[in-house]
Amino acid sequence: MSDLTLSKTTAERATLANFFRSHRRSTQFKQIVILLILGIGAFLMIMPFEWMLATSFSRSANIAMPRVVRFFPADPSLFNYQVAITNLPLPRLYLNSFIVTAVATVGYLFFSALTGYAFAKGRFVGKSILFLIILMTLMIPFEVRMIPLYFLIKEMGLRNNLLALILPFLAGGFGVFLMRQYISTIPDDLVDAARVDGASEFTIFWRVILPLCGPPLAALAVLSALWRWNDLIWPLLAISDRNMYTVTLGLAVAGRSQGTYTGSALANAALAIIPITIVYLLLQRYIIRGIAMTGLKG
């Protein structure tokens, strides 16, 4: 190697250096073009949000809207936000959404992991048929079973109860499937060693398996939280009491009933979007990794 380097003539070195310099210049140019295109895209992505904020802070936005693009309100005021908080009991809606999302997600993770563990490491009669049933539930979209589900919830006396938004989503085929795939990759030796030590199957699941399932659990948590927080059609059926609305339901209903009151409707939207955006920015690494891992979203 060193002989080769030493034997290079000065001319050869010069051409090589030249090649690298021009190569670097062209890659830098390429980088700038890419940055420019993606930057324009990013600008277009953010613009509606910026416009929402600018309009929501404009005092006259309910009466007259400017016919030019404005990124700052000409007449800044908090008026629309004062209207917005009287329109909807937003703190209460946030609490409802939070309870539903948190309880449903914790349950979904627990039942997915527990069932996934049984199908990955268990030996029992009828295992493949039972797993096939799990996979079949994936084929049935929610919309197809929603009408009888509505009557069922009504019969159970759970209309306008947050439990109605939690119970049907505690167990899901996709979660079981994902956890089974992941737990299958954990070596049997770990499970067998714990079994020799006399641990029960549930203890093995709780103490040995679960601590190893960080990545798929994080991905499932992101998905479940997005599904529950953003769901509209089921809360629309199960909830009619304004105090039991989720944030998404409140937004869809209030947004529609406000019609032309642009400023206060957009203030409502801003109040629903800003807290989620902050959580998203704090957790973006996990959320984006989770989406890339499962390839599914809300």
């Binding site: 927080w229 998404t248 989620i276 959320i287």
Partner: peptide, 9 residues
């Protein structure tokens, strides 16, 4: 970002 803030919003 738009995916997070829900299609309703």
């Amino acid at each position: 970002l738009p995916q997070i803030t829900s299609s309703v919003a």
